[in-house]
Computed example of a mutant assay.
Amino acid sequence: MNTNSNLLFDFKFDKENKTVSITREFAADRDLVWEAWTNPEILDQWWAPKPLTSRTKSMEFKVGGRRIYAMIGTEGQENWSTHHFTAVNPKDNFKFLSSFTDSNGNPNSPFAASEWEVNFSGQDEITTVNILIKRDSLEELEKLLEMGFREGFTSTLDYLSQYIEAKFKLRRQNKTTKKARVCTYLNFPGNTEEAFLFYKSVFKTEFVNGITRFEDIRAEQGHPPVPESIKKMVLHIELPTLGGHILMATDAPKEMGFSLNSGNNMHICLEPESREEGKRLFDELSAGGNVTMPLEDMFFGAYFGEFTDKYGINWMINVASDKKLL
């Protein structure tokens, strides 16, 4: 499967240097592709040739950190591997040693580790990923190829391309440039749709990509099922107003532990261009205030946090990471 035949794909086996080099283009900007390779929740969406699936047990994406994950078969059988990260240069490249291990990361295979180097280049809508895989033993490298590595990894990259086209499409629709923006985020006790239909009639604009409801939340392990009484409530909605400003909102029902009043139903929402800038803004603006939700990766698709500053003003920091719940 190749989701876009116009995108470059190249696979080379160099016996003399005991390497495999792979070049693949993806139809997304570099930030999005980097996120897909380095965020464990997104990795688990694609890091396995079908019908296998990937499940990350733990991951620290930093020099000296590691990712422990399992390839899970259709009958539930688990084959574990570990990536030991040896270099991380954000948005440019990272390196790791890949080994077959047990579920605790202890090597359990006669195969030695593979050295991986993953490089990212390009801007805007096309990102090129160059992968170099090296082994000390030519015999082991040839054995991996005989076991179907080329076919399996080619299929895996195709699924990543498909994932990007499907899951990242919404971001490109919602936000057509990479410029940072400021939005206003409103919370309602259950009448968001009514309010936004009113605002829509006033501003004479259209909702950005319709209305996302609580029933659209994908069922996942670790998250309780959505109560029947709130399934039709609004999870997220966006409406342009004036001068490029976006009004956003959600229902905040008591069934999910929310308690609204006139002091906590409105936030200034900052959407910086990078996680680094998001953290800086969060740390500096929240100093002396009250952090109500620590800045972290969220299941709904963002590096996100909330706080009230020392003057009583409510803020949100939202850096889209494209781990969409839809």
Rank of each mutant, 00 (worst) to 15 (best):
R218Y: 04
G257P: 13
H267A: 11
R181C: 14
D216A: 13
Y199Q: 10
E276F: 05
K324C: 07
F196A: 14
E273A: 15
N104M: 12
L170D: 03
N265G: 04
A249K: 07
S321Y: 00
T205P: 03
A27K: 07
N187L: 04
E194C: 07
R275E: 13
S21Y: 08
F307E: 01
I230K: 04
V20E: 02
L295M: 15
L281S: 03
L281W: 02
W37L: 03
K15G: 05
R135P: 01
E142V: 08
I164M: 00
L235S: 06
A166M: 04
M298G: 05
L144W: 03
T292H: 03
K204P: 07
E296A: 14
R66T: 09
L235C: 06
S262D: 15
P225H: 14
F9R: 11
E125L: 06
K134Q: 00
A166S: 03
T53Q: 07
T212W: 01
N6I: 02
C269R: 11
F9L: 12
L235T: 02
G301V: 15
Y199F: 12
V291E: 10
G73H: 04
S161A: 06
F149P: 02
K12Y: 06
S5K: 06
G105F: 12
R172D: 12
L8C: 07
D44N: 14
E151I: 04
E220D: 15
V319C: 00
V291W: 05
P51L: 04
L260M: 13
I313T: 06
F153K: 04
K204H: 07
T184E: 12
F258V: 11
T241R: 13
H84M: 05
F94G: 05
V129S: 04
M316L: 14
Q221E: 15
G76H: 14
A180G: 15
T127Q: 06
N265A: 08
E142L: 09
G257M: 12
C269K: 07
P40M: 09
K12W: 07
H223K: 11
R66Y: 06
R30F: 06
A70W: 03
S321M: 01
P49F: 02
T156N: 01
G305K: 13
E146W: 02
P294I: 12
G222D: 09
E16Y: 01
M248D: 11
Y69E: 09
K57L: 13
A36W: 00
F61E: 08
M293R: 05
E271K: 11
N191R: 10
N174Q: 15
D251M: 00
G148M: 09
N261V: 13
K91G: 10
A302V: 00
G190D: 10
N209H: 03
L32T: 08
D92I: 14
T23K: 04
